[in-house]
Simulated scan of single mutants.
Amino acid sequence: MAKDSQTPLDDELAREEREAEPQAETVEGELEDAIEGADQAATEAEAADNPEAEVLAARVEELEQSVAEAKDQAMRAAAEAQNVRRRAEQEAEKARKFALEKFVKELLPVIDSLEKALESMGDEASEAHIEGVSMTLKMQHDVLAKFGVEVVEPHGEPFDPQFHEAMAMVPNPEMEPNTVMDVMQKGYLLNGRLVRPAMVVVSQAAG
């Protein structure tokens, strides 16, 4: 499979990462050179019993701390750049997955109408007519499934308020309470996210 072309955001993040690395290396190099020079000066001062030795030693310690801080800042900057890239990729993937949600919602009433038409056809309907509607409905379902749409048809399953909408509660001694007795309208998911809940009739304990 061909690799997706980079977006302007990808190019910008990559450029910032490339620029951050040499800058961090330059800062570290300059500080390390300064420490080396200060170390040498401190050694020479101690050898000559120079009173500036303590000052130079303090300077060395200060420079070493600066190096540690510079390294920490460089690591934090690199980590933040990676986090920004990761968040951008996640948002792009989310947008790609759910870009069709509005279109799917508009298409569902068409599917509902085809299903009702098929259910209402009596013996007087011709076989060709029934087959034509059935094939059209199947094509609609196949296209939706291709783009990650799933049907929610929970007949006989426990009622789940996350995916089902109870339209009525009916006493039924033959079923466990809180079980879906009938599906009045199917629900649909798009890549696992609810687009429309299933409208259902739910059983309750007989009074």
Score class of each variant (00 low, 15 high):
Ala81Asp: 09
Ala42Asn: 05
Ala47Val: 09
Ala20Val: 01
Thr136Glu: 12
Lys138Leu: 08
Met184Ser: 05
Glu115Tyr: 08
Leu13Arg: 08
Val170Asp: 05
Glu115Gln: 14
Ala206Arg: 13
Asp142Tyr: 05
Gln204Met: 15
Val201Met: 15
Asn178Tyr: 02
Ala41Arg: 13
Glu165Met: 09
Asp112Gly: 02
Ala58Val: 05
Gln140Lys: 06
Ala125Met: 03
Leu114Thr: 06
Asp142Thr: 13
Gly207Asp: 15
Glu93Cys: 03
Pro22Trp: 00
Asp182Glu: 15
Met181Thr: 11
Asp160Val: 10
Lys116Val: 03
Glu30Val: 05
Leu144Met: 14
Lys138Ile: 00
Gln73Gly: 00
Lys138Gln: 14
Ala77Pro: 03
Leu190Gln: 02
Ala47Met: 14
Asp4Val: 08
Glu64Arg: 15
Val180Cys: 00
Asn172Thr: 02
Glu21Val: 10
Ala206Phe: 15
Asp49Arg: 14
Glu46Met: 08
Tyr188Trp: 14
Ile35Thr: 06
Ala42Lys: 07
Arg76Thr: 11
Ser66Pro: 00
Glu124Tyr: 07
Asp123Gly: 13
Glu115Ile: 05
Asn83Pro: 00
Asp72Trp: 00
His155Leu: 12
Arg59Trp: 05
Leu190Tyr: 07
Glu54Asp: 15
Glu12Arg: 05
Glu36Tyr: 04
Glu131Gly: 06
Tyr188Gly: 00
Glu25Gly: 03
Pro171Val: 06
Glu89Tyr: 00
Glu28Met: 11
Glu61Gln: 15
Leu100Trp: 07
Glu131Trp: 00
His129Leu: 09
Glu25Tyr: 05
Leu9Ile: 06
Phe159Leu: 00
Arg59Asp: 12
Pro22Tyr: 01
Gly37Glu: 13
Ala2Ile: 12
Leu100Cys: 03
Glu131Val: 02
Val67Lys: 13
Leu118Cys: 01
Glu115Ala: 13
Lys3Ala: 13
Pro109Asp: 01
Pro8Gln: 13
Pro158His: 04
Glu16His: 11
Ala58Trp: 00
Glu157Ala: 11
Ala47Asn: 14
Val151Tyr: 04
Ala58Gln: 12
Phe147Asn: 07
Asn50Gly: 04
Lys97Trp: 01
